[in-house]
Design a binder for these strands. Structure first.
Lengths: 216, 216
DNA sequence: TTACATATGTTAGGGGATCTAACTTTGACA
DNA sequence: TGTCAAAGTTAGATCCCCTAACATATGTAA
């Protein structure tokens, strides 16, 4: 017979209910549950209005419980951002897996996915990039970021016909990153519509990819 | 004899000392002084760690005093951001006033100034653009933003040889804005150096301006 | 099975922040 | 000069972060 720890049992149980609250003295998987509560609250009200207490209320535990799993409030946010950035990286991978290699279409698809994530998970995106990076220093997080940008660099190299990551590849990569990064913020802030733009996002992403990838 | 209100006297006095603290029961110009204290604190420790109490300590007044001038903590930040964005707009104007009209050099100069401001006043920049826009809704702020972007649009139109702000002008304008906007964030987060880039910022700004302004 | 160590909960409380209510001082002006 | 409104003050309600001390459940080893 397969043996289950309490942790596993609780996790299985929650797959069905989606509930965050516990029904026993020991929660089972409070850490993951608090991360999810944090994510919901940050998406709902913004990182600055996120409070540990409220996450505790969502999870149905006392306000001291999180400190058995996280150093402090900031550490909870970091854990949440790490989980979010892993989703982001996976989606970036997935976005290009069915497209012909070496095609600018892959660059465009990466850009679309980048913006898409920023719009779907603005709380995570802003916490990761719009906040104060010095408060999110974490080796794991840094590694995820590097891995994600590497996806882009490889595609740029392929499009430019370069065998490896040269200076010019890096430069074009940063241009593209800067562009989709800024676009993500501006779209989230609704600046485009505010400034009277009827912008075709799809066209713009393709157009920029083309302009940046040109030889000259 | 010229008459001075207390407000004017206090303001004159502070021109010399640069001090924030008061020496009388009534401060003289507490509002401006709190805005400056807010700016310093936000630049020093970030908007999320800014506290009204600490601004009060800097200004030498009780913690209840600000509420005679600002609705709440958020309103103090908004007032500070408005002042910052007015500086920003002035600098954007100044950046191009000596350059030949219709030249892509003006676009590049605007981009340089944009990034420069973001790096010199990261606290203001992040609060304005990296935070939650819904908390900064203010008609004055919106108007300043529009006026600043209009500077860019006029330059783009001139470079493209368009008489007025057409759809294509707006589109290229957004491309440029997105680029320098994202670049500002990434530079502030030190992502370029983290990702192993020895990027020539000056070259990149010129190169992007050229690519975006091309006919095709 | 029982006993113990450890992990993971809880309650209580210090310290600090935001904001309000009620009171006080001061400057401007009739 | 006297009055009123503007702009300070103190006191305190409420909320939040985090720690210390205590309580309970779980896994392991005798």
């Amino acid at each position: 017979m397969v043996k289950h720890t309490q942790k596993q049992r609780a996790a299985l149980g929650k797959e069905h209910t989606g509930a965050l609250r516990k029904d026993r003295y020991h929660h089972g998987d409070l850490r993951e549950c608090l991360i999810e509560a944090t994510r919901r609250l940050v998406e709902d009200k913004g990182a600055d209005r996120f409070s540990v207490s409220e996450a505790c209320r969502l999870a149905g535990v006392s306000t001291a419980a999180p400190y058995k799993h996280f150093r402090d409030r900031n550490d909870m946010l970091v854990a949440m951002v790490i989980a979010g950035m892993m989703r982001h990286r996976e989606r970036m991978f997935a976005a290009i897996k069915d497209l012909p290699s070496g095609s600018p279409l892959r660059i465009k698809a990466l850009g679309q996915e980048y913006v898409d994530f920023a719009l779907k998970e603005p709380g995570v995106f802003r916490l990761k990039f719009g906040g104060y990076t010095d408060r999110l220093t974490d080796p794991e997080l840094e590694e995820i970021g590097r891995a994600t940008f590497d996806i882009v660099l490889r595609e740029v190299a392929a499009c430019l016909g370069e065998a490896d990551i040269t200076t010019v590849v890096r430069q074009r990569g940063f241009m593209l990153w800067s562009f989709v990064h800024g676009l993500s913020f501006l779209l989230n802030d609704q600046k485009l519509s505010e400034m009277g733009g009827e912008i075709d996002l799809d066209f713009m992403l393709g157009d920029v990819a083309e302009r940046v990838l040109r030889d000259h």
